[in-house]
């Protein structure tokens, strides 16, 4: 940066300081919840807890993370996210691959049908009835099957496949490879970036999903983390409708905060390592080679 004047540096530093402060400001609500989760309950009720914890203690946190319901919900969420992501990746790739072959008859019509589902769907009740008829109520399958293929992700993969040179496949065919071999041994290994990206999309979707479990899961032993969290946090806002028995059993504000923090930690730990794929992912397929 040769040729910069002192004034420029001054301006730059002002801009940087402003931006840093604004960035930090977005952390404030999070910091507030964090400090509530490690403060004493009386201080929270009296409104003394801001960013700095009052009466530091870790008992609430320990209570939350060792609660069997929390651990169980965490396990269910992780299970659904892992199995769901793998299944989604497999099915999405296998759907996208034939559709990427323009020379096959009918691909255009099929794609239109796929796109149709992006815009229209049956709505909650028909979906619920469908899931019920499939006997998937209270079954983790109900969290994975409806979200198995996201059309948007499928189209991203399809355009990535289209950008691969067709001569690769031709040479493989000359060597006697069949379609499955070509897909699994040649195309997919070359599609690392796009698979990583949509895999991440799927994983985040499965992890954050609370709507499907809210509809389809009644058994408390199958509730994923988001639903557990929602149940705990929502408690606060309905207190006017509750009877005295419920009022006496409302989880304390500290417990709620600690649950929020504890359930954020897993995704916080993974995020920094995955963020670059998120940014990359937006660009994939945007320029056709």
């Amino acid at each position: 940066m040769r040729g910069k004047k002192i004034g420029d540096y001054a301006l730059d530093s002002v801009i940087y300081i402003c931006l840093t402060l604004m960035g930090l400001a977005t952390l404030l609500p999070f910091a507030n919840v964090l400090s509530k989760s490690i403060s004493e309950e009386w201080a929270i009720v009296a409104g003394k807890v801001g960013i700095i914890p009052v009466g530091f203690q870790l008992d609430t946190m320990r209570f939350v993370v060792t609660s069997s319901q929390f651990l169980h919900a965490l396990f269910i969420s992780a299970l659904v996210a892992v199995i769901g992501t793998l299944a989604s990746l497999l099915v999405t790739a296998m759907t996208a691959y034939p559709l990427s072959k323009r020379e096959l008859p009918g691909t255009g019509a099929l794609i239109v049908l796929f796109i149709f589902t992006m815009m229209f769907n049956g709505g909650i009740i028909p979906n619920y009835l469908l899931i019920r008829q499939l006997d998937l109520i209270n079954n983790l399958g109900s969290l994975i099957l409806p979200a198995l293929v996201s059309v948007f992700n499928m189209l991203v993969v399809k355009s990535y496949f289209e950008s691969l040179p067709p001569s690769l496949e031709e040479s493989a065919k000359l060597e006697g490879a069949r379609n499955y071999t070509i897909l699994f041994r040649i195309i997919l290994p070359l599609s690392g970036p796009v698979l990583a990206t949509i895999g991440l999309f799927y994983a985040v979707y499965y992890w954050n999903d609370y709507f499907n479990p809210m509809l389809y899961i009644n058994s408390s032993s199958l509730k994923p983390l988001q639903l557990y969290l929602q149940d705990i946090v929502m408690n606060a806002d309905t207190s006017s409708a509750l009877s005295a028995d419920d009022l006496m059993n409302v989880p304390a504000e500290g417990v709620r905060s600690a649950t929020v923090i504890a359930s954020t930690i897993p995704i916080l730990l993974v995020y920094p390592f995955l963020q670059k794929y998120f940014i990359k992912g937006v660009l994939i397929g945007s320029v056709k080679g």
């Binding site: 004493e40 309950e41 009386w42 201080a43 929270i44 009720v45 009296a46 409104g47 003394k48 005295a244 009022l247 006496m248 304390a252």
Partner: peptide
């Protein structure tokens, strides 16, 4: 609970939380 208000309208089931907080602050 922080001692700023002289009176409040509450349900009796809220008393333990309030009592705990106000006697500490």
């Amino acid at each position: 609970s922080s001692g700023k208000a002289g009176a409040i309208i509450v349900h009796w089931a809220d008393i333990p939380t309030i009592s705990d907080a106000i006697t500490k602050s």
